[in-house]
Amino acid sequence: MSAAEFDVGRGYRLNPQVALRPEPFGALAYHFGNRKLSFLKVPELVELVRELGEHASVEDALATVPEQRRSQFRNALASLANSDMIRPQD
């Protein structure tokens, strides 16, 4: 999936195969399936990813982010979706 195909109208959640480890800068995300490691470099993004599954859509989740940072966070989520760290809700 490319960033362009990331549908903010859909609900996403953290992949059950991914472990998030809190770090001073944000968190490390490790995918036990594809063995990818991602650095989430701001705590606000970590919080957003953790709470993603509680929102009906990515758009709803992004509404909790200050408007001027929304595009940046949307791109970050698209990147995480691309590496299967987050996946569409069932």
Binding site: K36, L37, S38, L40, V42, L45, Q72, S79, S83
Partner: peptide, 11 residues
């Protein structure tokens, strides 16, 4: 304005 990347991927 260069956008800071919030996610960096690498094992």
């Amino acid at each position: 304005v260069e956008e800071e990347l919030l996610v960096e991927e690498v094992i």
